[in-house]
């Protein structure tokens, strides 16, 4: 049913992603789908990497580790955003088109009052993406 699964990851908060990663691996195995781990980074140095190239390397390592651990096929797709605080959603929506994913699996926080004003990333992707989106609560 699904050929390409896209899973957005935040390398700075890798520990919080356990559920979404497990879910991605299970679905990938079940449908024999290829996984694209998409990470959004900045041109400026961040907590994760000094520059986009270094980030790319770290994301590739992460994808490889996931592939080895779960026995799935996985690639890394870094995306550069100018202002990630506000651009993450748009960057991810573009990545869905670029990767040609037919399923997005993403972690999201428990909804709170603030989501009425600023929707969560997961919520916004689910609302605007043309493919199926599975939002996994953390």
């Amino acid at each position: 049913m699904f050929n390409k699964i896209m899973t957005p990851v935040d390398l700075a908060h890798e520990g919080d992603l356990a559920k979404a990663l497990q879910c991605t691996a299970d679905l990938a195995k079940h449908y024999d789908a290829e996984v694209h781990f998409v990470g959004v980074t900045t041109g400026t140095p961040s907590a994760t990497a000094h520059n986009p190239q270094e980030y790319k390397g770290k994301l590739a390592e992460f994808a490889k580790a996931q592939a080895d651990k779960h026995g799935i096929r996985a690639t890394a797709d870094p995306v550069i955003a100018h202002d990630p605080t506000t651009d993450v959603d748009d960057a991810l929506l573009r990545a869905i088109d670029d990767t040609g994913a037919d399923l997005v699996v993403m972690q999201s926080h428990m909804p709170n009052i603030l989501d009425y004003i600023w929707p969560s990333n997961g919520g916004k992707i689910a609302e605007h993406a043309k493919c199926s989106v599975l939002v996994v609560r953390g």
Binding site: P45, S46, N51, P52, Q53, E54, G57, L59, A60, E61
Partner: peptide, 26 residues
Amino acid sequence: ADETDIEGIPTPEGAADIIETDYRIG
């Protein structure tokens, strides 16, 4: 981008002279 080694020593985008520091942003 597999040039990055296991410790994640920074690989610049082309040639650039990264300053090595123990400080981690954030």
